[in-house]
Design a binder for these strands. Sequence first.
DNA 1: CTAGCCTTGACC
DNA 2: GGTCAAGGCTAG
Length: 466
Amino acid sequence: MEHRPDADLEELCPVCGDKVSGYHYGLLTCESCKGFFKRTVQNNKKYICAEKQQCTVDKSLRKRCPFCRFQKCLLVGMRLEAVRVDRMRGGRNKFGPMYKRDRALKQQRKTLMQTSGFRRELSSPLCSSSYQRDLAFTGDLQPDPFLHSIPLPTAQNDQTGHQCPSMCSLLPFNPLSATQYQFTSFSNWTIKLEHTNNCVSPLGSAAGIYMNSDELYSNTPQGPRIPQLVMEFLRCDPDELQLRNKTIARLKQEQTGWNKHRNPSTFSLMCLMADQTLFSIVEWARTSIFFKQLTVNDQMRLLHSCWSELLLLDIISRQVLYGREGSLLLVTGQEVELSDVASHAGPTLASLIQRGQELVDKLSMLKVDRQEFACIKFLILFDPDVKELEDHRFIEGVQEQVEETLLEYTLCTSSQYFGRFAHLLLCLSDLRALSSLTEDYLYCRYQSADVPCSSLLIEMLHAKRS
DNA sequence: CTAGCCTTGACC
DNA sequence: GGTCAAGGCTAG
């Protein structure tokens, strides 16, 4: 891809939307906002807003309210300290390397977006309808002995009884809606959602997610410098052993009702495991950075939109990280031979398993690690294309931030392999296509009354179709 | 006061 | 010597 040095200038000024003339005081802005910011800081100007400090700042209205204009300059990340106290002209300041890095990142992202077709509208060409119709739905994974023959492992730290609440009740009412926050400090991270006039930020993104530049990376003495946000994602990640124990406890509880009649089908067991995994996914999201700042409505919309992608990623990442070739590692810790699974599945399910396995192979070849899976989960969750979001801008900002973080991480850990990020995005496209097919399949099974009732899985299946 | 253009000078 | 983000200048 050819590099055009003036490609930056195609962007719009984050303050007023005018044409960008270059990097000024920390980020790409237009000439007039550069001048305005300089005059304001150099002359220590104090403005007053005649309205409610919420004036629109765009190219035509930027002169109307300097107070709101300056607030917006700070909000988008213009740096006070880039204005020189001594007024010395020319030369370079400490932000030089930052501008350089930002240029490289922007260029790389642009290239990757163009080449990988990452955006959802460009991906998933096989989604649902046409492809699904070609695969005749033929029903069941036969109730076969291979799963039942493996004793359920013993749960450690046994969990107490299970309830099956709906997702809404799992997401507690959030007393402060996102837009009501001024600042929400979280670890080293600050998510800024309203105007404020003192922030520290290198290259603030549109959502206003700010970090202290000294705290961008973890300080591991050996090995690659891991971006701090990746460490935060890892911290949010659920513990595999806990999930295993919860699932086993749930299955054992369900088991008490089985013996009276006959064993449930393998498919029903799989649904129960998926259902329990969904609970853990909701719990993960609910307690995760950024997500817990959203309104409950937005939380529900995001989860209803991406549950199957997260569910599949959970299964697939387990195979990549802990699995053995030729076998399927279940969330319970049980291992079943893939050939057994495939031979008992109908053609639709067999084809889904086949495609899933191909994705596992791809990701295994890439040696995708826990850090990358953790980032990908956030990429999936914060999907700005979801309809009717209340805080679309914030969600879009998180998405951009996570993309940048994942790109940085891949460059840190495998600089010799430049296309890693693009490969990961391509795998994500595959995952999206596959999850859509899987949803269709599950919905068919649900309509045939094959999916066990009163489960989160069913709530999710309904959500997108209602 | 605004904003477009000019000058400067450290860094590559 | 070229680049480009600082500060400076000035008509409107």
